[in-house]
Simulated assay, not measured.
Amino acid sequence: MPRPKSDDKRAAIMAAATQIIATQGLGAATAAIAKEAGVSNGSLFTYFDTKADLLNQLYLELKGEMGAAALGGLPDADGRAQMLHMWSRWLDWATTNPHKRRTLAQLQVSDEITASTHGVAGQTLAGMGEILERSRASGPMRDVPAALVFTLCNALAEATIDYIIRDPGHTEQHKRSGFDALWRMIG
């Protein structure tokens, strides 16, 4: 009879994978991830069938965490206020979780992440997409494909996050400047 899986061990593997991928890249050995997690390499494969399975599960977990952070405490307000809230929380998550942000960026472009996983992640972030859609409904980007608008928003967020990291003493100013640019683009 196989041993029951431990939520703590799975969480340790996910945290270790985040750390190792952020520092070593997607080519990092599963043995390094297992060692960082304090489990045997064989135990890692008790939780994940393959390295690709681990990467896909990690991608979903990080996307879900980012989305939950962005939407947490969402005010019952107009589209601009909701968009500002989501923007601010998204940037806060990214700047306080640099390893998660770096790992997520690598996973986002990895061929190991399946179309199905990307689809599930999209559903996970549906709340963010709904706010973006409402925000751009009567703006200059209303007729542009949603995927392009989201890509542009993400690029603006990444640039703003990078700037905040380089100049943390002016975080709120940079968040506001980035949002003002975003709102001029979509609002």
Rank of each mutant, 00 (worst) to 15 (best):
M86A: 15
M83S: 15
G122I: 00
G72V: 05
A15L: 09
L44G: 04
T30P: 03
A22T: 10
A16N: 02
A37M: 05
T23M: 12
M66A: 10
N56M: 04
Y59Q: 05
A77N: 12
R102Q: 15
L60Q: 08
L84I: 07
S6I: 02
H118P: 01
A16H: 02
G73Y: 06
K63Q: 09
A81S: 10
A12H: 10
L74R: 14
A17Q: 04
L62V: 00
A121D: 08
G119S: 05
H85W: 15
A121G: 13
F45R: 05
A68H: 07
A115Q: 11
W93T: 03
Q108K: 10
S6R: 10
Q57S: 11
H99V: 09
E112H: 07
R10T: 06
D8F: 11
F48S: 00
R10A: 07
K100R: 13
E61A: 13
R101N: 09
L84F: 05
G38D: 02
G64R: 01
P4W: 04
K63L: 01
M66G: 03
T95E: 11
A121V: 08
R10M: 11
L62E: 02
W90E: 13
M14D: 01
D8N: 04
L91S: 11
A28Q: 06
V109M: 13
F45Y: 15
Q24C: 11
M86S: 13
P98Y: 09
S116R: 08
D8I: 07
S6M: 00
T114N: 06
K9M: 04
D76G: 05
R3H: 03
A69L: 03
H85E: 14
D78R: 06
P98Q: 08
T50N: 00
T117H: 00
H118C: 01
D92L: 09
R10S: 03
K100S: 14
L60F: 01
I33N: 01
I13G: 02
A22R: 11
S40K: 12
K63S: 08
P75L: 12
A22N: 12
